[in-house]
Amino acid sequence: MERRIDLNADLGEGFGPWRLTEDEGLMPLLSSANVAAGGHASDPATMRATVRLAQRHGVRIGAHPGFPDKVGFGRRRLPFTMDEVTETVAAQTGALVAVAALEGARVEYVKAHGALGNWAAEDEEVARAVLRGARAALGTGAVLMAIAGTAQERVAAAEGAPHVAEVFLDRGYAASGLLAPRGTPGALLTDAEEEAERMLGFLRTGQMPTVEGGTVSMAAGSICVHGDTPGAVAAARLLRERLEGAGWRVAAA
C-alpha cells in the first residue's frame, strides 16, 4: 500500500508591500497551502497572488482564518464570543472563496490560525464555532485541517465533518498533546536535520517527542511547515527529500 503524506504551510502572510513568508520558495515543495484570509494578515491582492502561485504549482488551496489582529499576528487570544468566532471564520473564508474565484480556483478546506487554532484545539465549543463558520462559507461538506489529537479533531469526527489531522515540523509538543506555548523552552525548533529526523521517527512509530522528555501518541495525515520560521524553505526542502527517500509520496490528503 502506498504511503502518502500531505505537506502544508501558512502562506500569503503579508499585506500591501509587506511580506513575511517566502511563498515563492515554499510553494513548489508543498501539496497544500493555507492562505491567510485577511484576519491576522493578507489583503485581496495578496490573497489573489497566493492563489495564483498555488495554481501554478498544482497545490491545494485552503483558507487560514484567525483573529482579526494584524498587530498581534493573530497570536493573541481575543475575548470573542462563539458567535464572533463563527462570524470571523465565515467572513474570512468567504472572502478567500470570492478572491479565488477570480482565478477560477476553489478553496477546499479551512485551517484556523494561531491563537484561534490553539483555542479550538483546547475547547470543543470553540471547535464547533469554527466548524459552523467553515460550513457557512464552504457548505456542509467543508473539510477542516485540525491539530492532531485535539478537541477540534474530536468535534469534526463527532459532527461528521471530513477532516485532516496535522502535526507541526517546527513546533514542540507538550505531554498533553497540545503545542508547547511559544516562548517556552523547546516550543520552536529551527534545526532542519533535527526536525526531519523527528518527523520521520513520528511517522514510523506514531509517537511524538514532548518538551518534557517523553512521547505522546497521535496520528496525522499532514505536516505543517510554518512559513515565518527562520529557514523554512530549507527545512521544507530537506523534509520532502527525506520523506521521499523513505518511500513517502507527498500529496494532498
Rank of each mutant, 00 (worst) to 15 (best):
V51Y: 08
R171M: 05
G221T: 07
R76T: 13
M218I: 06
L243G: 03
L200V: 12
G172C: 09
G104E: 13
R154Y: 05
L96W: 10
D43Q: 08
T205Y: 07
D23N: 12
G66C: 09
R249C: 12
A156G: 04
A180P: 09
V164M: 10
R154P: 03
G94F: 14
M199I: 15
E241H: 14
G74K: 07
G16Q: 03
Q152P: 05
T21H: 02
R76Y: 00
E193V: 14
A45L: 15
G177A: 04
G16S: 13
A251L: 07
A246T: 04
P17Q: 09
A165K: 08
V155F: 01
M218H: 06
A49N: 02
A37T: 15
G16D: 00
L20M: 15
C224P: 05
A148W: 00
V89P: 04
E159G: 10
P181Y: 02
A148D: 00
L238P: 03
R106G: 02
H57C: 05
G66E: 06
W119C: 09
V59C: 12
G133M: 03
F73H: 09
V85C: 05
L96N: 13
R48F: 07
P28M: 13
L239S: 11
L53K: 05
A45S: 13
L144R: 10
T150K: 10
L11E: 03
F80K: 03
L243Y: 09
R52H: 04
R4T: 15
R48I: 08
A151G: 06
G139W: 12
G114D: 10
T184F: 09
R48K: 15
L138W: 14
A41I: 11
V51M: 10
A121H: 03
R154D: 01
P65I: 12
R75N: 12
S217K: 10
G12C: 03
Q92H: 10
G16H: 01
G58V: 12
A196R: 06
G38F: 06
A192W: 08
L53P: 05
R154L: 07
G12I: 12
M145D: 10
A232Y: 12
A95M: 08
P44C: 02
E84Q: 11
A219H: 06
G114M: 00
V216Y: 05
L178M: 13
T215K: 02
Y109A: 02
T81E: 01
A100V: 06
E244R: 03
E108Y: 12
M208N: 08
L102I: 08
P65G: 15
A33K: 15
G206D: 13
G172F: 07
G74W: 02
A105C: 06
H226R: 08
G16L: 15
M208A: 14
T215A: 10
L200N: 05
L7T: 09
I223F: 00
G12K: 01
E24L: 15
R204Q: 15
E87N: 00
V99R: 10
R249G: 00
G201F: 08
L11Q: 04
G206T: 14
D10W: 02
A36M: 11
T190W: 04
A115S: 11
V164T: 03
R132P: 09
T215G: 07
G227P: 06
A187K: 09
L203I: 15
T86C: 01
